[in-house]
Amino acid sequence: MPAVAAGVFRRTPIERADQRIAWERGDQAFFAAGACHILAFTCRDSYPDREIGLTAMVMDGDEHPFHVYATWQGWALDAAGWNPEHEVLAVNTAFEGRRIARVPITAGLAGFCATHLHRMPDQYWRDPLPRARAYLSGFTPPWDVTA
């Protein structure tokens, strides 16, 4: 599917306050806003033979990222699947109407979550890791397409 801005799926106040309601959103919405970091880290962990990077999008003037995705050789994996990274950045920049910095993530999941106020898997209504693995399996990695 084509790249879609994460902000299209931004959680409502009730979805932010109630983890069960947030959990019940469709997979694309869940992994676009609220669990994007879980999907990105799951992607990296699912392909240990590939040099998968992790990148955060931070809007100009903000301290914490609003979206996280996995990268591989110019490709980005987020809730919309694998798309050219420049397209993922472009749709998010256009939607937000602000400059977005691309910030590599070097910390592990726990360190990233602690630093950037994101939830660890055990802080969701249910364990999001099996859901992330299942969702990820629906996307063909670019190395299987371009090889």
Rank of each mutant, 00 (worst) to 15 (best):
A94H: 13
D45S: 13
W75M: 09
R50Y: 00
R126V: 06
T106N: 13
C36M: 05
A70K: 00
N83S: 09
P48E: 04
Q73H: 14
D127P: 05
T115D: 13
F112D: 07
A76N: 00
P48K: 01
M57T: 04
D127H: 05
A76T: 00
E85D: 10
N92H: 09
T42R: 06
W75D: 04
G61V: 07
P104W: 10
G111I: 04
V88T: 08
A33T: 04
A29Y: 02
D122T: 07
I52H: 00
D62R: 15
A40M: 06
L39F: 10
A76G: 03
P65H: 01
H67V: 14
I100L: 15
Q123T: 02
D62L: 14
V88C: 07
L89W: 07
R44N: 01
Y124V: 02
T115I: 03
G53I: 00
I38G: 09
V88R: 10
R126S: 11
G81R: 03
S46K: 03
A40T: 11
F31S: 14
W82P: 01
H116L: 05
A76I: 00
A35P: 07
A33I: 08
A56S: 15
H64T: 11
F30N: 05
L77T: 06
H86T: 08
F112P: 12
A107I: 02
P104S: 12
E85H: 14
T55Y: 08
P104C: 10
D127R: 02
D60K: 15
G111M: 09
V103G: 09
R126C: 15
G97S: 03
F41C: 13
V58P: 01
A40R: 01
A80T: 13
A110G: 11
N83D: 05
T106H: 15
W72L: 13
A110T: 13
Y69Q: 01
E51C: 03
C113W: 09
Q123R: 12
L39K: 06
G97F: 03
T106I: 10
Q73K: 15
D122E: 06
E96M: 15
P121D: 05
P48M: 01
T93Y: 07
I38K: 07
G81I: 04
A33K: 03
V103Q: 11
A56W: 09
V91I: 07
A79M: 06
A56T: 00
D45I: 01
M59Q: 13
F95R: 03
R126M: 12
F95W: 08
I100T: 08
